[in-house]
Amino acid sequence: MIPRQMTRTELDTALDWAAAEGWNPGLDDAEAFWQADPQGFFAMEDQGQMVAAICVVNHDQAMAFLGLYICERSYRGRGFGHALWQHALGHAGSRSVALDGVPAQQQNYARSGFAPAGRTVRLAGPLPAGEATGISPARLEDRATLSALEAKACGYFKTAFDQQWFSDTHSRHTLVHHDGGVIDGLVTLRACRDGFKVGPLVAPSTEVARALLAACAEQSGGAQVMIDVPDDARDLAALCADLGLRQVFSTTRMYRGAAPLTGSGLHAVATLELG
């Protein structure tokens, strides 16, 4: 079996596999993922069928992100996934590569040169009602501003991904906070196979983050909401705890190569699959 590029239709299959593993992808994730870097999705094939999947998406000239690493159950433990992993990493070239790894796989990732840089904690629960003061829907013409805000928070640009992610669909919506007519905070809420996920969230203060999450509460209607918070965003984690969200699992952010310089303020991860 030889690794090859994935087709767009196979990405839908990979996300179905992810759902079966409990990763709970969003209902409209596939197209935004694909448009981030259509050349960055890879598959291992056996007798005309995809048996393993992975993505290494090149976000900018310095940073790539690895995710959606999954092998069909009957093919696990036979070396097919590792061969695909090695092939896909070549797509990053000289870029640093990031991933969010579960504890059981971190030693395997370390053998490929990935070093831990901190935890990401998933907090979950229904969001309580609150005052969504200063919040309005994002406009298409805001996307460059939103991309720059998130790049300042996470340390690198995801321009192609953001162009799709910050464009509303029937199940994904981005909201912004204005201060004196200037956007200083944002949040994206997307419906998933089960409940909703928040991400990214960028806010200059706890008060702005609280307003953004109150707006998410209005849209999620009491359903389960999940948010992935880096461990250096302690004020956001404390706010989520105050709102009644509880930890359900964690991953470790790991880098092969130099880690980016993240910004101050409150920040939640857009997606564990693409950063």
Rank of each mutant, 00 (worst) to 15 (best):
M1I: 11
R4C: 09
M6I: 08
T7D: 08
L15N: 08
E21G: 03
G22S: 12
G22D: 13
L27K: 14
A36I: 01
P38K: 05
G48Q: 08
I54D: 03
C55T: 14
V56M: 07
N58F: 00
N58V: 00
H59T: 01
F65H: 03
L66G: 09
L66E: 07
G67N: 06
G67V: 05
C71N: 06
C71D: 05
R73N: 11
S74N: 11
S74V: 11
G79A: 09
G81A: 13
W85Q: 09
A92P: 04
R95Q: 05
S96D: 04
V102S: 04
V102D: 08
A104V: 12
A110W: 04
G113I: 05
A115S: 14
T120A: 10
V121K: 05
R122Q: 13
L123F: 08
A124P: 03
P126C: 08
L127M: 09
P128L: 12
G134M: 10
I135Q: 06
A138L: 11
L140K: 13
D142A: 11
R143V: 15
S147N: 00
G155R: 00
T169H: 07
H177C: 12
H178R: 15
I183L: 09
D184Y: 01
D184I: 01
V187N: 05
F196P: 01
F196T: 01
G199D: 04
V208P: 00
V208R: 06
A209V: 04
R210P: 00
A214M: 09
A217T: 07
Q219N: 14
A223G: 10
M226L: 14
I227L: 13
R234A: 15
D235W: 05
D235R: 11
D242I: 02
L243K: 12
F249E: 10
T251W: 03
R253E: 02
Y255W: 15
G265S: 10
A270T: 14
A270F: 04
